[in-house]
């Protein structure tokens, strides 16, 4: 049991509106059950939206939350950073010093510092692990393009906001529980908000559905040339797979946006994800770390893509890909190798 007074509770953000329960939050909730047991803290699952989805209740039960708090208002049905931060901030203020955890989604990247700023409490964002080591709560986060990791010991009992995207494959199931449910209808905002939502749009329809591909060959900035992309496309064809890319490759105009994998693109779980010249930023890993087999080719042995890869080749794409193509002609899903 860690020294210092414990947090009264761990509050895990389970999602909002159509993203509730958020897939990324389930793993975190299960991990937090484990932590809360050891810390002697309660575990609360927090939901925002117009109503409380039954699937969120089930998810919180399966992972052993002690309580579900559902903050409900028409304005919370859709994402609104300012309204979200205010609702969550007010709740946390009322409940006293706890540890507030969010899965590291794009929305959380905005809401977490907004809540931390409002409450004037520190935040540790973009963490990839939270554990108990030598009796202390320790988080791990990447720095310097993900090529270095820092492990930080956290003092329990002090209010803190943390965003986490767990990178290990520990089970998503926790021990089941029987949470009490507290549904709070929030009154209309007393103070006007500074931002007004005018509307939104879904992502443009993609030319192919990456989420259905069993084999994905993905090009990153290490493959930002006509010749390298041609190699990537050739391999995808040989393997009967689809070509995907990291975000900068779409920004640079090499691929349409529908091919992006990651936070601002698709989340994929193919049988094979072959990453060519992709560093493995958190926002990219978020979209592919659950692929069944991940193979990465990168010239940098410390590239964070190797943290999630099953197999790795350290080297230059320009050398590895042509040699591979030479040998691989004829391989396709299901076919026999020469």
């Amino acid at each position: 049991m860690p020294s210092g007074k414990p947090w009264s509770e761990l509050v895990v953000f389970l999602g909002y509106g159509q993203y509730c329960p958020d897939g990324a939050a389930l793993h975190l909730l299960a991990r937090c059950r484990f932590l809360a047991d050891r810390l002697g803290s309660r575990l609360t699952a927090l939901v925002l939206g117009q109503e409380l989805p039954a699937s969120a209740v089930a998810a919180a039960e399966e992972r052993g939350a002690d309580e579900i708090v559902s903050l409900e208002a028409p304005a919370l049905a859709h994402y609104h950073a300012e309204a979200f931060a205010r609702a969550v901030g007010n709740l946390l203020r009322e409940r006293g010093p706890g540890l507030f955890l969010l899965p590291n989604t794009l929305e959380a990247t905005e809401v977490a510092p907004a809540v931390a700023g409002m409450l004037e409490v520190p935040a540790l964002t973009n963490c990839i692990d939270i554990e108990i080591a030598n009796g202390c709560v320790v988080v791990t986060r990447p720095m310097f393009w993900g090529t270095r990791h820092v492990r930080i010991q956290v003092e329990t009992g002090q209010p803190l906001v943390v965003t986490v995207q767990l990178r290990d494959g520990s089970p998503v199931q926790g021990r089941p529980g029987n949470p009490s449910v507290r549904r709070v209808q929030l009154p209309a905002e007393a103070e006007p908000l500074l931002t007004r939502i005018l509307g939104g749009s879904e992502p443009a329809v993609a030319d192919i559905d990456l989420t259905k591909a069993e084999v994905i060959v993905a090009a990153g900035r290490g493959a930002a040339s006509k010749s390298a992309i041609k190699l990537v496309e050739e391999i995808a064809e040989l393997l009967g797979g689809a070509v995907a890319c990291s975000r900068p490759m779409a920004d640079l105009g090499w691929f349409p946006r529908g091919r992006i994998v990651g936070t601002s693109g698709k989340t994929v779980r193919p049988k094979l994800y072959l990453a060519c010249g992709i560093s493995g930023a958190s926002q990219h890993l978020a979209g592919m770390q659950e692929a069944q087999t991940i193979i990465a080719i990168n010239k940098d042995p410390y590239a964070p893509i190797f943290e999630v890869a099953h197999y790795g080749v350290v080297g230059m794409l320009e050398e590895i890909l042509p040699a591979f193509i030479e040998n691989a002609r004829g391989i396709r899903a299901g076919d026999k190798l020469p």
Binding site: R151, L160, A296, F306, V313, V314
Partner: peptide, 19 residues
């Protein structure tokens, strides 16, 4: 309310096998 324990190169979750 926290303290850096160590900075290092990444621990590999899956113990990638380099070919």
């Amino acid at each position: 309310p926290f303290q850096v324990l160590e900075v290092g190169v990444p621990q590999r979750v899956r113990r990638v096998k380099f070919l």
